[in-house]
Design a protein around this nucleic acid. Structure first.
Lengths: 343, 343
DNA sequence: ACGATCTTGTGAAACCTTTCACCCGGTTGG
DNA sequence: CCAACCGGGTGAAAGGTTTCACAAGATCGT
């Protein structure tokens, strides 16, 4: 195996100095066409492959950015990741996708890994915890952008206004005449959940109806099913007539339990989700949901990060806040059957 | 900014040689406890962070493996990825997740990227194309394992027997008395699809019924909805009484169109999917599906790869083939309502 | 015709870690 | 008492790329 062929080998083979090879690679215009051709030919013949590690070592930083998400199995985050990747690709950066599973320990691990790799920057939806290591990382000069979470002060962030989103959902239910509405979601320590709840509470107050809280352990299917089971177990008189879930995974879980118990959706119980993942519109009872611009979220975050990476001094921190949008489907209003909102 | 603190700085600060610092990091037992303490303290005080690039350069390879999947938004692949990550973590390797989107160009790009990064190895579900670059990469000595695709000869692979899976699905439908069965999936150039179809055909032949092929452009929701629309448009007499879809995404798409057109599932049309992603069991009409051991697929593949990485010479190539399993739910058999298969 | 300017190309230095041969003082076995 | 050994530590070399000051010719302006 001619395992390790380096620029030196290429240079020798092409009869030039190694500096010239590097120039061919990095500033082709500064090399005479004839020479360039010979070098390129040598590269081809020898099967030379640039050593990224050496480049990084020299450059002092890698050409990749980290993206740490809370749950890679939630389609919301894969969509965000897709947006991030699009923007990163334009800037010639690759994305290292990390799944913290909402565990501080794993988050720390990946954070440390990314620092060791001298990532150009980090995008993160952080887990909720008292003292975050993020502040320290920023102070060391690592560009950092918060995703799906508004930053407090001198920090970039891209988020969607969850208070407004929660308000939209419950206002919709109020407008439909619901008087017994439940909020399903948790844990409340998660800012996104807390804010959606807060928006929901305001809307409920405005509509002069109570809002019953049904807290869950996390934002997964299973949690939704457990909540759904609880709801199904209530007597029809006490049962909420509408449920607002903190995300679509929960909502789909609740929906399934309703169906299983032959509780009509939206007749007996209306359901609203949050995120508007693809599966929401495609559920057999298409789910009304609060849409977040998932991909834009990702690409906007990446753009902000890249801006700081490219020009750390000229960079001004910004907080981008998107507006959520209510997408009404059959799980709250009978007869979105005629046609669907999208293909 | 004390931006770049290296082992040399640590050594000076602790009053030892740089070799000793390295020993503390890599073979702590060879350093006297007192010295070790001082070095550790220096590391702490200076905020030293190992430079992964330099380590890689020295080692000649990186401590990460690449995983190239066809569609990161298909939960099947995120589950596989989760399995890969578990196994990789045990071996102290990190995973670089790449999404080829089933495009040769993107696949090439990531392949080249991983080679530049001197990845320890590559896991890939390749796109179907005449001359794959994979052979060349293997020849250069890069450990490579095929995922969800059986290898031809001297190559490791982990797959699930798709012919058997296709057979299971259609045999189930035949046993239920269906005589008009359609296969929805495509493109047929994709081996997984072709094999599932082949298994389905055998089972249909055994049951002495025809199998109508409805080819799709890809394996997404949208494709499923388009297929569903076609099916819904047929006169009840000509309409298939059962549909076997090449994956769950398609099946969910078909299911949605059936619901939209008020075609009863499974009464008028039974539907069977493939993969058994979480969303299958949790659809409002829970989907009968052919389960693939998604995470095991990933971790088995990673284990095989790691085996080759750790001991390239002692390594024997293996082809692991899992057996798929039929999971019956309400989309083919009324009354899986009483209780669900899993929480 | 001669200095100035351009165009090409050169090769050493720097980036940071790990490894390895080697050193030193002390202990042990014969 | 000497050789062998041992624990603990040293520092140079290697690994591949990029950059940068510099050199050698060629070209140009006057």
């Amino acid at each position: 195996m001619s395992d390790t062929v380096s620029v030196v080998d290429v240079a020798r083979h092409a009869g030039v100095s190694l500096g010239t090879v590097s120039n061919v690679l990095n500033r082709p215009d500064r090399v005479a066409p004839a020479t360039r051709g010979r070098v390129l030919a040598a590269i081809e013949e020898l099967g030379f492959i640039r050593n990224e590690a050496a480049r990084q070592l020299r450059a002092g930083r890698s050409r990749s950015i980290g993206l740490i998400v809370l749950d890679i199995r939630n389609p919301f985050f894969t969509d965000v990741a897709a947006g991030v990747e699009d923007s990163a690709a334009v800037a010639g950066l690759s994305v290292v996708l990390c799944n913290s599973r909402d565990e501080g320990g794993r988050e720390d691990h990946y954070l440390s890994l990314l620092q060791q790799q001298r990532a150009s920057g980090i995008l993160i939806t952080p887990t909720a915890r008292p003292k975050s290591p993020l502040e320290g990382i920023r102070r060391r000069g690592m560009p950092l952008v918060l995703v799906d979470r508004a930053a407090s002060r001198r920090q970039c962030s891209v988020s969607v206004d969850d208070v407004v989103g929660g308000g939209l959902a419950v206002a919709h239910l109020v407008a439909l005449g619901h008087r017994r509405v439940s909020f399903v979601g948790g844990p409340l320590s998660t800012p996104q959940v807390a804010e959606r709840l807060s928006g929901a509470r305001s809307a409920a107050a405005t509509g002069d109806i109570p809002l019953v809280l049904l807290e869950t352990a996390d934002l997964t299917f299973s949690a939704g099913r457990r909540a759904g089971e609880q709801i199904a177990g209530m007597s029809p008189g006490r049962r909420p007539s509408a449920v607002f879930c903190a995300n679509d995974l929960l909502a789909l879980g609740v929906l399934q339990e309703m169906t299983r118990h032959r509780i009509d959706v939206p007749g007996d119980v209306a359901i609203i989700g949050y995120d508007d993942i693809d599966f929401a519109g495609s559920a057999a009872v298409p789910l009304t949901s609060v849409r977040q611009p998932r991909e834009s979220l990702g690409s906007a975050a990446a753009d902000l990060l890249i801006d700081e990476v490219v020009d750390p001094d000229g960079h001004r921190h910004r907080r981008v806040v998107f507006e959520p949008e209510l997408v009404v489907r059959s799980s709250t209003v009978r007869e979105s059957t005629g046609r669907s909102n999208e293909l």
